[in-house]
Simulated scan of single mutants.
Amino acid sequence: MLTLPPELQREIFEWTATAYPSVAPKLLRVAQKTRLWLEPVIYRVVVLDSPMITISLFMRTLESKPPSFFAAHVKTLCLTANTVTLQQAQRLLSICSGLENLICWAGANSANLSSYISSKKLRRLSAKMEVLFPEDPTMDDIRHPMFKALTHLDIVNPLEPPSLQHWDGLSALQNLTHLALGDLFYWSPQAVSTTITYILDRCENLQALIVVCGSKPQRERLALEHKDNTKLHLLPSFHHPQDYPVYMGEIRQRGDQGVWMNADREILVK
């Protein structure tokens, strides 16, 4: 009987677990060696979304392994559910200190989380600024050293700022190439247009600026005003063109993409 070399066996198992996340837990039971191979793959992306049972199960899992395991292997952490408590979010961020990608859409009950982000490798961030900096959620806060390596930043549902200088801190992010803002449905049309120009003028390294706006007339107007700007992309929703379950399924599988997965595919719409 033909026996595959161990390194090829491992590659097959890891590929299968990555391509089909739902079957990965079953593969753990094949043999002890498959558990050692696949646990780092399974925990590479942690998504805490509805239903609540998924949150409870993962918090229980934290007790089954040393913190060093999660520090080493969790690269993407996605907190999308408002049912993630402040204490749970703080603990997760403290333990997962090797994060490269953080998606934090939790509500105000999970505010003041910036001091718990200990990762020095954070490359992609999608968050509400008031969750990270509840007292003064301006772009000056983004100058913090924890964000110096960011290449992709998604500012979720920002409030219309009192002045354009609100965005000045973004220019300090020398590695930033992709920026997303939205939804800006409730902003005044003039504020959206001047913000786009202001940011692009000051963030010279940007390759793409994604503006999410649910108003079709406003998108059409912005597309006309900025028709010669190849960096600007306008979306009706952050998960366009997928529906939300498909979008989240891709996050679970790919981990590091988020709203920018569509920028990479060049299927953004004006």
Rank of each mutant, 00 (worst) to 15 (best):
A149Y: 11
A149G: 09
D154R: 12
V156M: 12
N157V: 12
P158N: 08
P162E: 12
S163A: 14
L164Q: 05
Q165K: 13
H166K: 01
H166A: 05
W167F: 09
L170Y: 01
L170Q: 01
L170I: 02
S171V: 10
T177F: 02
H178I: 01
H178L: 08
L179Q: 01
L179G: 03
L179N: 03
L179H: 02
A180D: 01
A180H: 02
L181G: 07
L181K: 06
G182T: 05
G182C: 05
F185C: 13
W187H: 07
A191G: 02
V192T: 12
V192P: 00
S193I: 02
I196C: 06
T197G: 06
Y198T: 01
Y198K: 02
R202S: 05
C203M: 02
E204N: 11
N205T: 13
N205F: 07
L206G: 06
A208E: 11
A208Q: 11
A208S: 14
L209S: 03
V211K: 00
V211D: 00
V211I: 09
V212A: 06
C213I: 05
G214K: 06
G214L: 01
K216Q: 14
K216G: 08
P217K: 05
P217Y: 04
L222P: 00
L224Q: 14
H226N: 02
K227S: 13
D228A: 13
N229R: 07
K231H: 07
L232R: 04
H233R: 14
L234K: 04
L234C: 04
L235I: 08
F238W: 10
H239W: 15
H240T: 13
H240Q: 12
